[in-house]
Write a protein that binds this DNA or RNA. Structure first.
Lengths: 248, 248
DNA sequence: TCAAAAGTGTTCGTCCTACACCCATGA
DNA sequence: TCATGGGTGTAGGACGAACACTTTTGA
């Protein structure tokens, strides 16, 4: 309740202190695969294991500020201001860090075109790894990463988030690939096209511009992200299998 | 990243300590209105103002445990274990509490049938107030409450969350009222009924049971919450107005 | 001339919407 | 017998899935 006026005094050190950190699940699309930014830990615990990038909150900044700062440091990107950065949830289980009580605010970030992995402010190595191949991560980062992937996949359905994976100018085929890679399914190009163009503000055409995509085929028209945030009606991912389970 | 091995030593007190709290937005349905549980602050700052219930994380518990503990204390409910409790997001802006640095993990909770407001462990007064009439709250709790309401409204669309507002046995009219009150719109009873019954696992009929609802009319069959969590396809709330604004 | 991707058209089924209509109950 | 809410039926329209077809490029 933030109402601590009745707890034993005002002593800031009355309780065992909590460390507050941010952890980042940074996704990008490279080579037709969903990739995730990881750093290799140089110290115990979990020395040598991959982990999500992150760090401590500084006294003057919010979790959002800290996340954006870490994102800039770890990716080496200059224009971090425009990137999609979204708070996921907070992980606070005692014992998630064996050294001390760490409460971690997790974020999911989407980067359109990933620059080379860059070791950031830390000495540890950083790399982009295809999602799903990263093996067990340090701490509870496997769970955080899975939660982030779920969130991104779900948000593609009812928001215009997909453009955050794309460069400033993109084709509808590239936009469709975002959905296909994150969801792991194929979509009908014709119906996808109609659906996107029928949503006002999802994408804006760039008149006259076109680009070849796969090296072959007809050059595709270019689009820029529109101003719309929500997608009504939603673009539902195909149900894998009806799964049944329904009595009746 | 939770990797603090490179920061100046291991001194737990090297940084200004953060206080970590939980704040709860507890909703219920009473008298056909959406109500919210609030406590009146007895001390500065914001003495006399309403605030969301909440409190400090204890050293041995997670934010979820703390939230459930506070929920039990503030509502006086016995079977808090089965209630819907969902992490909203974390609010960490510096200065949100004028006394010290407080990072607050906010939760939204849904209570089927609200018992009388109960002053919990704190001396402060607690009460259920209709949502929208609560005036300005303490701290940034207005924003937290608005975020919680948005989240609940959105989750009704694509999850089976609505049953969390209902007692163990309920009629479809009562379930429909949950949607109508939270969304502030009217729904077609006939179509709502078909939609709910067509979703396997949303509700389970209780054979032979029936109850009068408004004092008049045909007694309605009773249902219990089913095991399904997600609602496919979603139950979209009617668009208020097309809002236009879309070029073409 | 072929393969590949963009883009257009069309059909068919399904779901949603809207109402009309009957049923059971208390006043 | 009337008002009220529960419950069923149904016609019309909107939307999405599936697929055929044309266009434009590089190989």
């Amino acid at each position: 309740m933030s109402d601590n006026s009745h707890v034993p005094g005002y002593d800031k050190y009355a309780y065992e202190p909590f460390a507050v950190t941010v952890d980042l699940a940074v996704f990008t699309l490279r080579g037709g695969a969903l990739q995730i930014l990881l750093v290799e830990r140089g110290h115990e615990p979990y020395a040598g294991r991959w982990a999500l990038p992150g760090g401590f909150l500084e006294p003057h900044e919010s979790a959002e500020s800290a996340a954006r700062r870490e994102l800039a440091e770890e990716t080496g990107l200059a224009d971090v201001a425009g990137l999609h950065l979204e708070q996921l949830r907070t992980y606070s289980e005692p014992g998630r860090d064996p050294r001390m009580r760490v409460v971690s605010v997790a974020f999911a970030a989407l980067v359109p075109d990933a620059p080379q992995a860059y070791g950031g402010g830390d000495a540890a190595r950083a790399a982009w790894l295809p999602y799903g191949t990263q093996g067990p991560l340090a701490f509870d980062h496997d769970r955080i990463l899975a939660d982030a992937h779920d969130r991104i996949g779900g948000k593609l359905e009812y928001t215009c988030l997909a453009t955050a994976f794309c460069p400033p100018e993109f084709t509808l085929g590239e936009l469709r690939q975002v959905y296909e890679v994150v969801w792991g399914t194929d979509l009908d190009p014709a119906n996808f096209r109609r659906k996107v163009l029928a949503t006002p503000g999802f994408v804006e055409p760039i008149p006259g511009a076109s680009r070849l995509t796969g090296g072959r085929g007809k050059p595709a028209a270019l689009y820029a992200a529109g101003g719309a945030m929500s997608l009504h009606p939603p673009l539902l991912r195909p149900a894998h299998e009806p799964s049944e389970g329904g009595r009746r």
